[in-house]
Design a protein around this nucleic acid. Sequence first.
DNA 1: GATGAATGAGGGTTCATTCAT
DNA 2: TATGAATGAACCCTCATTCAT
Lengths: 189, 189, 189, 189
Amino acid sequence: MRAISDIRRQELRGAAFRVLQREGVSGTTLEKVAAEAGASKGIVLHYFRSKAELFEQVMREANLVLKTRVTARLARAGSPRERLEAVIAGNFEPDLFTAPICQAWLSLCAEVPRDPALARIQRVIHARMCSNLMSGLRPLLPVEDARVTALQIGALIDGLWLRLGLSPGALTPEQALALVRELLPARSG
Amino acid sequence: MRAISDIRRQELRGAAFRVLQREGVSGTTLEKVAAEAGASKGIVLHYFRSKAELFEQVMREANLVLKTRVTARLARAGSPRERLEAVIAGNFEPDLFTAPICQAWLSLCAEVPRDPALARIQRVIHARMCSNLMSGLRPLLPVEDARVTALQIGALIDGLWLRLGLSPGALTPEQALALVRELLPARSG
Amino acid sequence: MRAISDIRRQELRGAAFRVLQREGVSGTTLEKVAAEAGASKGIVLHYFRSKAELFEQVMREANLVLKTRVTARLARAGSPRERLEAVIAGNFEPDLFTAPICQAWLSLCAEVPRDPALARIQRVIHARMCSNLMSGLRPLLPVEDARVTALQIGALIDGLWLRLGLSPGALTPEQALALVRELLPARSG
Amino acid sequence: MRAISDIRRQELRGAAFRVLQREGVSGTTLEKVAAEAGASKGIVLHYFRSKAELFEQVMREANLVLKTRVTARLARAGSPRERLEAVIAGNFEPDLFTAPICQAWLSLCAEVPRDPALARIQRVIHARMCSNLMSGLRPLLPVEDARVTALQIGALIDGLWLRLGLSPGALTPEQALALVRELLPARSG
DNA sequence: GATGAATGAGGGTTCATTCAT
DNA sequence: TATGAATGAACCCTCATTCAT
């Protein structure tokens, strides 16, 4: 059965992500992860080749969650403008745009420059966001303007995640959303 | 003489910041810092009470450098619009807005949630940026709009630093500058 | 199975006590203990949370050995006088009242003022000795005299242990025994 | 001038002994001693060749203080019995028989087995006490009995110092004195 | 004489990782 | 599969000691 070990892996990824929120990457030890999962010390490396691989899968999974939300919203979006709104709103879901989660992300991002596997995931994330934004912007703007605006929006979203991680309570999802919406192209008269 | 120990401390902060760029916070060991400074391992803790204090001072110093640049530009700024340009340009100086430096920042920021000393510095940085931006925006916009725009610009700057840290080469200082300038209030009349 | 780890813990306590005899508390490093036990350095802290806890358990164990000897002798004692003899003789067993062991005790005692856990054990030891002595003295003396004599005997025993620790070879168990016996109440006509 | 450096040495010995009372041998660092003396870090090894030599001199000095007290009392003693009282009382002077001082002694004694210099001093101390006691006991007892009693009294004094060190507050100087006096030969009718 | 800079050894402790059961 | 014993490397930090000023 693949299922049972997949379930276990899933539990461990979840536990690792929760520890990550509290302790950061360097504070997250395999022992704490095991404890958080209610398992024994040696179990983590039974399912993941190394600590690095665990983090890689955690980041991959966290990304998947985000992607799923955005995709779900995009599926219900008709117009380009709705697509844009979907992408933005999907990045500020109230249960994901929280200080602990932003801090966990931040912590993982800080490892990106020295971890090729994480870097690869990060690249995918940015590429997807850019592509999603472009699919909404292209019908509204000249390609060059669209590209610039996509970059602007993407970077602003990243910056807002960073800010919430750095200053818990500084930002509500609604405020963040409003700030990003202002960057959207003005509704042409 | 205070001078000699201040010089040494300065050297060590510099060495620590350089190691930080390469290795991140958890990869930056006192031994590497000492080696980078061409000194012995024990000397670092002769000048800094602990590794945490070293990092605190490194962050404080790095912040000071940034602040100095912005302040210098502000001193030459006459109009509100020039003030805004000064603040923005000061945050993208070509010799500071580099991938290694952004990565070092990112690494320090990732510790903020678990290091009150770093958190304090971070708070000061954000407060100063906000205040600097407001001094340029207030004459141009209603107070509420100014506040929103200041947040937008600040978060976008943070996001662009984050992006360069994550994707070296993805962004030139000029591109970054251009993206932020677009958020400035349209020149009236 | 708890057994295997208990055995290991037992070995490590023994090794630690042997190193303690040679090197004193501050000379007893975890590395030396591990070497004495024929194990690796890391294993010691696998079984004891810290060096302090190791010492605590070593003292507890050493105390237990002493207690066992006294208790065994007490079990065979009928009269109050025999009880007193049991207590005293149990404190000068030839294989325990040796210079190295006295030195190890001395070394542990020197930490008592700054180690609450050791202080607690020390308190128990003194209380037990006092109680044991009183059980022999009460039938022979008025309570106040009994208390004084118990203190005298207890302190003399301590002093003799101290002396052997300070001057190896200065004292045989028999000499020590004889010195203490003199403090017992004279056999009434 | 020899005087000035002797004064400095004296101050440092005093400082070291005070630190010793609080921190024990292994907790007594040269830096703490310097701080206690209100001097700079490097000064201690300017006056003492090493930490070991400092401790040696501290023990020597502390011994001297004790010796002075006893000698002063002996000088006023006429009869053998008065000599015995002088020796005993001199070992329980209220300002010396205090928990911190007993703890400092205890800490030094614990080093005796591994420090020949301290061992030498310790030997002198015991020899002097024995000799002092014998000078009072010889006129009162057969030589063999005198030797035994001297040992008893000496060991009891040591034991009482040990006890006060282990249990601050357990013993007043008067109580200690009374316990020892009981060992003196009964006043012959 | 006095300061404190500098060194380097060593200690306790943590942790990822490997293995045997 | 799962446990936890065992290892060894590495890190932070402390300190006695040496030197240059």
